[in-house]
């Protein structure tokens, strides 16, 4: 048997209650802890909460915030809200992807250092175009400043 540590899940079940309506909150706890949803989470929660694995998979794939793949140490979200879009957020996204060899399908670098995603709106429209690095907002970015940020992270790694 696997040696997967279920403590995080047990604690979350304890905190939110052993019921179907807690599923999303429990998955969020797992996502925060592992930064993705490991496969082991599914049968365990299915058993505990009495929900089918297929249903949990359905919930996990419905919501943007859940990832079934491991994410990088640095998660960069490029805002593509309207305000950022009209102030040219797409070139920033393209520059980041080019710098890291990523694409719309491949979101995380092989060394699990960087994940680049888009987000619908950070609500920081006045700082457009904005990106976040592990949830910290970086305002008025340009393709150049975004690439520079990556380079500095790489150097400090």
């Amino acid at each position: 048997m696997s040696t997967f540590d279920y403590t995080v899940l047990d604690n979350a079940i304890e905190q939110f209650g052993n019921k179907e309506s807690s599923l999303i909150s429990i998955l969020q706890s797992a996502q925060e802890h592992y930064r993705y949803l490991p496969k082991e989470v599914f049968p365990y929660l299915a058993e505990k909460l009495g929900i089918s694995e297929a249903k949990i998979y359905g919930v996990a794939t419905f919501y943007e915030n859940f990832s079934l793949e491991q994410k990088g140490k640095y998660v960069i979200k490029v805002c593509d809200g309207t305000a950022c879009h009209v102030r040219h957020s797409v070139p920033i996204l393209e520059a980041l992807r080019k710098e890291l060899g990523l694409s719309e399908e491949k979101k995380t670098t092989d060394d699990l250092m960087f994940t680049v995603e888009t987000v619908a709106c950070l609500g920081a429209c006045s700082s457009a175009p904005a990106i976040t690095l592990n949830n910290e907002i970086y305002p008025t970015m340009t393709p150049e400043s975004a690439v520079a940020l990556i380079k500095s992270l790489k150097e400090n790694a």
């Binding site: 179907e20 309506s21 969020q28 919930v59 919501y63 943007e64 859940f66």
Partner: peptide, 26 residues
Amino acid sequence: INRGAGAFVCGEGSALTASIEGKRGM
């Protein structure tokens, strides 16, 4: 408090309540 999990459609009433119930926000 329930935190959304990233689905715009959950702004729709019945999708929002479905989401609070732990389901897909349809």
